[in-house]
């Protein structure tokens, strides 16, 4: 797996907004202000831990500030950010697995739920889902989270994970089976 960032290119241009501003024309601060909440949302959903999201945001925007001038299609910039976020999350999750394996990572998922009246049962369900995700191979976790938590279409999952559609489907199905078994068996 490459460690660099993907080249800026047209990705999912049809779905992107046609009136997206040219990122090269925006200051770093304006770019951050416009897109950081979006990256934070993806980061939280992928990582399941509020405490880790800040690092992901900073890594993603470090890449964005460096490469914003290479953008060919402004409409694809948001998708490009999502791809970088997924790659960054992959690195973080792999480090977390290694740290967990040697007993250095014992933090639990720390999810922020916008609605304060959301039921404890639903909070507990999400906590258990993320506990189950922690058991999965990282690539399976990412694909499943993009599909079921982020609600992305299969083609978009494949694009953001940098894999084929068939591989994305296989990863999602394997993860879904494992998670359902884990939730059922408690």
């Amino acid at each position: 797996m490459g460690s660099g960032h993907p080249e800026l290119r047209v990705v999912d241009g049809k779905a992107a907004k046609a009136d997206a501003p040219d990122p090269a024309a925006l200051s770093d601060e304006a770019l951050f202000k416009r897109y950081a909440p979006y990256v934070a949302r993806i980061g939280l959903r992928l990582l399941g831990r509020e405490a880790d999201v800040d690092d992901l945001i900073q890594e993603v925007f470090l890449a964005a500030f460096r490469q914003k001038h290479q953008v060919r299609d402004p409409a694809a910039f948001k998708s490009w950010l999502a791809i970088v976020a997924v790659r960054t999350a992959r690195r973080q999750l792999r480090k977390r697995k290694v740290r967990s394996f040697v007993g250095l990572d014992t933090l639990a998922p720390s999810l922020e739920l916008r609605d304060p009246d959301i039921s404890p049962e639903r909070r507990a369900l999400l906590t258990r889902v993320y506990q189950a995700l922690d058991q999965l191979p990282v690539d399976h976790r990412l694909a499943w989270t993009l599909r079921y938590v982020e609600g992305e279409k299969l083609e978009r999952v494949a694009e953001r994970c940098g894999c084929s559609l068939a591989t994305a489907k296989r990863r999602i199905a394997a993860a879904h089976t494992r998670i359902q078994a884990e939730l059922t068996d408690g």
Binding site: D28, E29, F32, K33, A36, P37, A40, R41, G43, L44, R45, E50, V53, D54, I57, Q58, F61, L62, F65, L111, E112, L113, R114, D115, I118, R122, L125, L126, V129, Y148, V149, E150, G151, H176, I179, Q180, L183
Partner: peptide, 28 residues
């Protein structure tokens, strides 16, 4: 499970305010 997650999706967002944005922007 998929239905539950779809219903919860909009609640699963990071707390975001100007203070956090400023801190993270400086952090970059």
């Amino acid at each position: 499970l998929a239905q539950e997650l779809e219903a919860t999706r909009e609640q699963l967002v990071a707390d975001w305010d100007e203070e956090r944005a400023a801190r993270l922007f400086a952090g970059v």
